[in-house]
Simulated scan of single mutants.
Amino acid sequence: MTSAPGFTCTACGTRHDETPLHYATPAPQYWLPEMESAPGCLLSSDQCVINGEYYFVRGLIEIPVRGTDEMFSWGVWVSISRKNFGLTNDRWETPGREAEPPCFGWLSTELPVYSPTTLDLKTRVHTRPLGERPLIELEPTAHPLAVEQREGIGRDRVRELAELMPHG
């Protein structure tokens, strides 16, 4: 791969000026459009509740790009317990919230570029300072996403992900 910014995509044939370093999903995998007006359901840019019994927060899985100071990230949703959702919500606007210990969660975003599925991977949700989304730390398993988070990825993998993800 050249050091020039951008790439020519082998999937769409177009020259892109930048290689994206972030992808995100707008809602947890379990959210359906008809839930928008359903009682007990809420979807904001950072929090989600389904049927008043399933609770989700949006966060980032960060992956170091080896040989650079760049970070690749996946914007994902994680389900957490009702108790932890309440604590997170109570501290949402509280300075110093990042001092709280992380909580357990289940990854609730399907990232189609990974096999096996990314759904229901075990995570730890680390609250960060105001204005920053939580850091999602995957359980250190042999799942390819967990390995990439631990070991980082090269620029070629960043380009490969760009070609595999919808873009235009």
Rank of each mutant, 00 (worst) to 15 (best):
G86A: 15
G168R: 07
V49A: 07
L21Q: 05
R82I: 06
E36L: 05
E18V: 12
V158Q: 04
P144Q: 10
T123W: 07
L164K: 14
G96K: 12
Q47S: 11
Y54T: 10
Q149C: 05
I50C: 06
L43R: 12
D90H: 13
G86E: 15
Q47A: 13
F7S: 00
S44Y: 11
G86R: 15
L87G: 03
V65C: 07
R58F: 02
G67V: 03
G131L: 02
Y30F: 13
F72D: 00
T141K: 11
R150H: 06
F85A: 08
V113L: 13
E163M: 15
I136Q: 02
A27W: 11
S45W: 15
E148K: 10
R150K: 12
I50F: 05
H126Y: 13
D46R: 04
S37M: 04
A142G: 12
Q47M: 10
E98M: 06
G40L: 08
T19A: 13
G154E: 15
E34S: 05
A99P: 01
R133F: 06
C9N: 11
A11Q: 07
M165G: 05
R91L: 10
S79N: 11
R66L: 15
T117S: 15
P144D: 09
L119Q: 10
H143W: 08
R159F: 02
G152E: 05
P64L: 11
M71F: 10
T94A: 09
I136T: 02
H143Q: 08
M35C: 12
L43D: 14
P116L: 07
T118M: 02
G6D: 04
L87M: 10
V125R: 02
S115I: 11
L111M: 12
R150Q: 15
C12A: 07
C12S: 06
H16R: 07
M35I: 09
T8P: 01
S45V: 14
R66Q: 13
G6A: 06
R159A: 09
T94W: 12
E148S: 14
P102R: 03
E160T: 10
T2D: 11
E36K: 08
D17C: 01
S81T: 13
V78Y: 01
A27Y: 14
L60R: 15
G13V: 07
R155S: 14
